[in-house]
Nucleic acid binder design. Structure first.
Lengths: 182, 182
DNA sequence: AACTATACGGAGATACTCTCCGTTTAGCAA
DNA sequence: TTGCTAAACGGAGAGTATCTCCGTATAGTT
């Protein structure tokens, strides 16, 4: 990649991250990002063919954060319930970090063609590691995809309804108790 | 209302119901509805100032169906778990009847200004009746709003991911077990 | 039959994603 | 330094949404 192209790409990602964090996915237009980065719309679309692929680029660093969170939860010296709830809470918080993202990422969970496919794999693997780690404490037959969708659904509702962050706790508690072995 | 206006309104609702059912909320444009009903866009917007208010008009008959479903579930001669699961399944099915509706209705649950406010009240009251009916079988402190959001979230994920209908069952089972008293 | 309040409907304002293509420039080679 | 070419740029605009304005037509009444 040519040096000017790399510079523009970096600046676009940086500007877009700020905009998305401040206003949410839907409320940010591509023209706005282009203008903010000092490039034309054509340049923006050369680097990121869709708005979602731009968003995907912003989430690059999430993979590490997700893996760190599941490690931290599993390593806790606490009951399975507390460890599970810790992870679900962190996971949900990461999903709602950018407004509008939770619903999109969760909807892409089963779609290998989505621009978010790599992120979804990361989430699924994290939940699989949780299942392996908590082992027999969970109800038999529970799948990583189910956990991902359940928590993604709750996070999406909290996000789109613009609820206070603490309203997610009782709902995650219900999900966690449902996930634990009877 | 003048007779011609009433006729147009009825025809718009009828045409729109068919379109929404066939293609889902997002994939139907207002121009398309207007054309299908043989009126101009101006006429359509005179009757329904937003696309969501048009959608709300289509859901008129849902209130009865929701109440009938919760009655039916509560009247079952079965365990609290089965009755709860029956209701959650019916409720989820009603939410996903039109593609794109579950997420919108669920997002509007806490917003009195939404065009869906009346429908949301119906849902909330139905879940409250469920809580009253199942009484001590449920975990203490659970609220109708929480059930509505949990099931709405699951339904929205299933809807937007276009999953097969039976994939909702294991997730609702987890939610149901989480809702039952420990 | 005339009158008026109401309804109609289409052109168009606005906003958005995304594309096409003529112009400019970075990086390299002689 | 100069010239060349592949790559990148950027803006006009295509296409598609929702929703509005306002001149025209008509239903229902006097």
């Amino acid at each position: 990649m040519r040096a000017d192209a790399q510079r523009n790409r970096d600046r676009i990602v940086e500007v877009a991250r700020g905009f998305f964090r401040a206003k949410g996915f839907d409320a940010v237009s591509m023209d706005e990002v282009a203008k903010g980065a000092g490039v034309g719309p054509g340049t923006l679309y050369r680097h990121f063919p869709t708005k979602e692929s731009l968003y995907d680029a912003i989430l690059e660093s999430w993979a590490e954060k997700v893996n760190a969170a599941v490690d931290r939860a599993l390593a806790l010296d606490a009951s399975a319930r507390v460890r599970l709830l810790t992870w679900l809470t962190d996971y949900s918080a990461m999903l709602t970090e950018h407004k509008g993202a939770a619903a999109r990422i969760t909807a892409a969970l089963g779609d290998p063609g989505s621009p978010f496919a790599a992120k979804c794999q990361t989430y699924l693997r994290a939940n699989q590691r949780l299942i392996d780690g908590l082992d027999s404490a969970l109800r038999p037959g529970v799948e990583a995809m189910q956990i991902s969708r359940l928590v993604g659904g709750v996070a999406a509702v909290v996000d789109t309804s613009e609820l206070p962050a603490d309203s997610v706790a009782p709902m995650l508690a219900i999900v966690a108790d449902g996930l634990l072995a009877p």
